[in-house]
Design a binder for these strands. Sequence first.
DNA 1: TACCTTTACTTGCATTTTGCAAGTGTAAAG
DNA 2: CTTTACACTTGCAAAATGCAAGTAAAGGTA
Lengths: 135, 135
Amino acid sequence: MAKAKKRSDCPVSCSLDVWGDKWSLLIVRDLLIAKECSYGDFLKSAEGIATNILAARLVALEENKIIEKLAHPDSKVKGLYRLTRKGIDLLPVMIEINLWAEKYYAIPEDRKAQLKEVKKDKAGFIKAMTKKLES
Amino acid sequence: MAKAKKRSDCPVSCSLDVWGDKWSLLIVRDLLIAKECSYGDFLKSAEGIATNILAARLVALEENKIIEKLAHPDSKVKGLYRLTRKGIDLLPVMIEINLWAEKYYAIPEDRKAQLKEVKKDKAGFIKAMTKKLES
DNA sequence: TACCTTTACTTGCATTTTGCAAGTGTAAAG
DNA sequence: CTTTACACTTGCAAAATGCAAGTAAAGGTA
């Protein structure tokens, strides 16, 4: 699994070394929306990630301190993933990605409605969401 | 190469379908910094992209209207790449990536200085930079 | 106690993408 | 008319991805 070897000191390059693939940010997205997800929850997402890829990405994201794995309160067989502070701090990036995509691609109506709220007070939204996710 | 097949309607997923790899955003970064780059300019960047990967990415980014290829004024053998408006609009995403990386990784001093300017007036910076890049 | 389901992975293998090195083609320079 | 610079292309090995099937352990049911 992608042992993050640094290609340069550029912040963009460093970031891409950690989450620059087609799946990592979708995992982060799921966690920003749901706060906590099990392995099975990620598999239910619309994009249909393969089980082996998901397992590999979860390990990599955990190694890079973007997510953390907790014990599930209901069952020992289940795990629960959530974002670390470092992961939560990707929220501004995620918001700008959403706004960019909204401008250039057709996206679902409910997402548009959410973004309308975000645009009203971006800083406020980020603050509130961060607080909620940190619980 | 990578004919962007849509995995879902999620804006994050759509975005990743277009530039969700380890190299595309580095090309965008170079163009945000330099405004115009030739094939050789991209090769000079610190990360050391392979020539075939670069060629493939340039084609993909052009197909997706993120960049455009122009004739070089000095020579017929050279081409000049620059960002389209759609590409320029990735600036907010790029800024947030930089800010995130600055918080969690060691980055060059000159980049930090630049980011300090950005933070003073993000909206103003984006507006000015956009104008400059659109020329 | 035995068995069945649910959940979370792991494994094997084909396909695709990446990375490296070397080669090709063309315009301009000497 | 040869050489150089630049922009790619090609071939091939290595790595990552995607798919399907398999394993293992906890917990529920009979």
